[in-house]
Amino acid sequence: MNEYRQTVRKWVKPEDLNQHSALFGGRVLQWLDEEAAIIAVAQLGTRSVVTRYMSEVNFVARAESGDLLQLDYRIVAFGRTSLTLSCSVENTVTGQEVLTLDRIVFVAVDENGQAYAHGQTEPTEGTERLRG
């Protein structure tokens, strides 16, 4: 399989902070899941995808207002009905790893919410599968 990487950057703003003036963990997970879903949609060629699984999340460093985070995604595997991604999040201001997710699994679902075979086996760099 060809290697696929996607990088997204997020700026930590005051509304993203928790009561300790650090990035709220739920906010970074929201960003992470949303961007991963966008990748899954483009790769599988359908807007009907659901997050099925996320591996253990371990926050190892904090981020504060004004910090810039870099979310680096990789495709781990294409399954018959699924796509597995990994993601690492780095604080580009401090150079510290914020968290890593080894596995984020998305599944293509039909109008009844049932998994179906998406037919993809190799990554694409574009969004042409959505138009096909």
Rank of each mutant, 00 (worst) to 15 (best):
T81F: 05
I39Y: 01
Y116K: 07
R131D: 12
D72L: 11
R131A: 10
E122G: 01
E122F: 08
E128W: 04
T121N: 12
R9I: 06
T51L: 15
M54Q: 07
L44R: 08
A37P: 07
S82K: 04
G66M: 06
T92G: 08
T46P: 03
T46V: 11
L17Q: 10
R27T: 14
I75H: 03
G26M: 12
L17G: 09
S86F: 05
L83I: 15
A63M: 02
A115K: 09
T84M: 04
Q120M: 13
I75E: 02
G66L: 09
G113Y: 14
Q70N: 06
Y4W: 15
Q120H: 14
L68V: 15
H118S: 10
D33V: 12
Q6L: 14
R5N: 10
L69F: 00
D72S: 15
G26K: 12
A115N: 11
E35D: 13
V41H: 06
T127R: 13
N112M: 13
L44N: 02
D16V: 07
E90C: 06
N91T: 01
D102A: 13
W11G: 07
T100E: 11
A42K: 12
M54N: 11
G66N: 06
L85R: 05
S21I: 00
E3Y: 11
L99M: 14
R62I: 08
R80F: 00
V41E: 04
A77C: 00
F24L: 07
I38G: 07
V28S: 05
Q114H: 15
E3T: 11
T92R: 13
Q6R: 15
Q120L: 08
L17T: 14
N91I: 02
L85I: 07
F24A: 06
E35I: 08
G79S: 06
V98W: 03
T100C: 07
R27W: 14
L44E: 02
D67I: 01
A61I: 02
Y116S: 05
Q6P: 00
L69E: 01
V49K: 02
A40L: 04
V89W: 02
A117Q: 11
W31Q: 03
I38C: 10
T51Q: 10
G95A: 08
M1Q: 08
V98D: 04
A40I: 08
F59R: 00
Q19W: 14
E15G: 06
A63W: 04
I39R: 02
E34P: 01
T46D: 05
Q30K: 12
V93S: 14
E111G: 07
E15N: 13
A40V: 06
R129V: 09
V76A: 09
Y116V: 00
W11Q: 15
V8A: 03
D102I: 05
